[in-house]
């Protein structure tokens, strides 16, 4: 494996590079918006990323995944600019998942949350996702976006976030657990699933009242 594979290759011309990079504008902006939760900052982050990428275009190995490469620059820029030193704190102080959500719910309830027509969630839950994602602690949100939206491997995410793979897995697990908990709660509110389906972290069923009481305390 070469650190700078491009050394033995002719880099793409600036014009070619520009054309290809701009095609990823939408994908970059989508991720940047989820990271910054702010439209203006997201646009600045994307522009900064593309200009940096253009300067460093010799390092891009043509024929490989440019979107992944751009996302890596975007994520690094985001971490360096906005969150230097602050990330760990967010995780330690961020809200933890409801332990009940870890016990999770019955197979029939999980099935009811999915759209029978597609393999995604029910549309009414999907509409709630963005808000749920925005409320996640930063490190969880970043891990979830990179893994689930950008479909990066644990290894790639670990490199980008500068942490061990185990940490990536734990952030993903905790982030997804919170998301599922929020969506489950929404499903309850919308009457998609029935409350008695809740199963505690032990084997004994837990009442909805206890679930909600617990939820209120952790908020």
């Amino acid at each position: 494996m070469k650190l700078f594979p491009s050394l033995s290759k002719k880099p793409a011309s600036t014009a070619e590079f520009e054309r290809e990079a701009v095609q990823h504008l939408g994908a970059l902006l989508a991720v940047a918006t989820r990271m910054t939760r702010n439209g203006t900052e997201a646009e600045d982050l994307v522009q900064d990323t593309l200009v940096k990428a253009m300067r460093a275009r010799e390092q891009f190995e043509s024929g490989t995944n440019m979107r992944a490469w751009l996302l890596r620059i975007l994520t690094n820029t985001f971490i360096n600019r906005y969150r230097r030193g602050g990330l760990e704190k967010a995780v330690l102080e961020g809200p933890d998942a409801d332990p009940l959500a870890d016990g999770w719910v019955s197979a029939s309830t999980m099935s009811a949350m999915r759209d029978p027509e597609s393999t995604a969630l029910r549309p009414v839950l999907e509409a709630e996702i963005r808000r749920a994602l925005d409320e996640l602690p930063e490190e969880f949100r970043l891990a979830v976006v990179l893994a689930d939206v950008e479909e990066m491997s644990y290894r790639e995410i670990a490199d980008i976030m500068g942490c061990p793979i185990g940490t990536v897995m734990s952030r993903l697990h905790r982030g997804r657990r919170i998301l599922k908990g929020r969506l489950y709660e929404h499903a309850l509110d919308m009457g998609i699933v029935s409350p008695e389906a809740v199963v505690g972290s032990g084997d004994a069923p837990v009442s909805l009242a206890a679930f909600r009481a617990k939820k209120a305390v952790t908020r």
């Binding site: 989820r34 976006v145 689930d148 939206v149």
Partner: peptide, 15 residues
Amino acid sequence: ALKLSLQRAVRSDAE
């Protein structure tokens, strides 16, 4: 399903 819905939600989000 969560993964798929996340992709749809985030990608359709910021044109």
